[in-house]
Design a protein around this nucleic acid. Structure first.
Length: 381
RNA sequence: GGCCCCAUCGUCUAGCGGUCUAGGACAUCACCCUCUCACGGUGAAGACACGGGUUCGAACCCCGUUGGGGCUGCCA
């Protein structure tokens, strides 16, 4: 197919090496750096050292009809005679692209903005082949915090990584769709169905967008909270299985279902949930030394007091636990918010986490009492 | 260097000549709710890059400047 261009006078063979061209450009003080057209009229025959070049018209201009950018006009004098076929007859990207597109009767070419500078060449080729060029649409690229085009090498953008962190596909799609595009009413949360229905290529923006993982995480949190408890648990299991303390028993799954609603609203990534659940399912919790000394040790007496209270409870459920602790708060005149801190740290190892009463209920009375009393003992040392 | 693209809060955006004292969302801060944290609620701070035009009137149109990105291979 490419050879037909020679007959039409749209292509010619060239044996210039890169260095030759550079030297000539230097010598002639040419401002342009590319190929200088040295072999255009030499009528070289094909040989193992010749490439086939496209003969770009000296005059005129080439127009790319771009659905997002409008008409992009480039003067032909600014387009170098580009290589079509390598010396070994292998076709180059533009050529391969164009014949492929013709072959497959492609109507629209959607690709990143970075390809725009080369598409006049493609348009030239379509014309030479007697074809009407397809519609092009060059969408803006995504950039990193330094405003550089996102690259696989430099930036961590593998979808697998996001999946491993606990991003939901739906949330990610929703967020990504909003980079460079927004629906007419400027709303943010939409289903794939709504997006495909309302999307129009003409509406996409012209400037690059920063890929803001923080905002995507917020989207993810909203999607997670919208999940049913069952679905949430289902999606959570693979993340729990990475923890050595997790036992996938039916009993534990039932607990998980109970805890789903209070867990959902505390995570924006599924990967954050195991840390929250750990004090319930792990046999032991560790309290950081400095934290223990500062926040727990001074309240050793309270710890054993609460342990005794727990022991005497008829039912060890959230409501009962709450009732006794509120009583204790009243009689001891320590606000509940103050009172819960040392016992939370002693039984979970963290200053913040799931609501304490539910957490205790699901961890179980013996476990909690054990953690309370051993902490009290440690504090006295 | 040459060529191409782009330019509204820190970020993603709405805006397509008058309705803009520029709207929303994320992030930030404050307050409220509250057993911690979160969720939720209320509020605050925060932008039309600059300079010329055009026009009765410019964030919106034109030109230039500056800034950013991209392309510039016998890579894809």
């Amino acid at each position: 197919m490419a050879l037909s261009l020679i007959e039409k006078g749209d292509a010619y063979y060239c044996d210039c090496r890169r260095e030759d061209v550079e030297e000539r450009n230097k010598a002639s003080q040419r401002t342009k750096q590319g190929y200088d057209g040295y072999c255009r009229e030499r009528n070289l025959e094909k040989s193992p050292t010749t490439v086939l070049r496209y003969k770009v018209p000296a005059e005129g201009a080439t127009t790319v009809h771009d659905l997002v950018r409008g008409e992009v006009v480039v003067a032909n004098e600014n387009i170098d005679d580009f290589v079509l076929l390598k010396a070994n007859d292998a076709p180059l990207f533009v050529l391969a692209n164009v014949v492929d597109d013709i072959d497959m009767k492609i109507s629209h070419v959607l690709r990143a903005e970075e390809h725009l500078p080369n598409t006049p060449k493609a348009v030239l080729l379509f014309n030479s082949f007697g074809e009407v060029a397809p519609y092009f649409a060059h969408v803006p690229v995504l950039v990193n915090e330094k405003r550089q085009k996102l690259s696989k090498r430099r930036d961590r953008v593998a979808v697998e990584d996001f999946k491993d962190k606990g991003f939901l596909p739906e949330a990610m799609i929703n967020y990504l769709a909003l980079l460079g595009w927004s629906p007419k009413d400027n709303r943010e949360f939409m289903t794939l169905d709504e997006m495909t229905r309302e999307f129009a290529i003409e509406d996409v923006g012209h400037s690059p967008s920063f890929f803001d993982e923080k905002k995507m995480e917020h989207f993810n949190g909203v999607y997670i909270r919208a999940l049913s408890d069952d679905d949430f648990v289902e999606l959570l299991i693979p993340f729990l299985e990475k923890a050595d303390w997790w036992q996938g028993s039916a009993e534990n799954r039932a607990k998980l279902l109970d805890l789903a609603s209070i867990t959902k609203e505390r995570v924006s990534l599924l990967g954050q949930a195991p840390d929250l659940l750990m004090p319930i399912f792990a046999p032991k919790v560790t309290v950081e030394e400095a934290l223990f000394e500062k926040e727990v040790a001074p309240h050793a007496e309270l710890l054993s007091q609460v342990a005794t209270l727990c022991e005497n409870l008829a039912e060890f459920d959230a409501a009962s636990i709450e009732a006794t602790l509120r009583d204790l708060s009243t009689t001891s005149e320590i606000p509940l918010r103050k009172l819960q801190s040392p016992i939370r740290i002693a039984t979970t190892g963290a200053k913040a986490g799931l609501p304490l009463f539910e957490l205790w209920q699901h961890a179980g009375r013996t476990v909690i009492i054990e953690r309370l009393t051993s902490s009290a003992k440690n504090a006295e040392k």
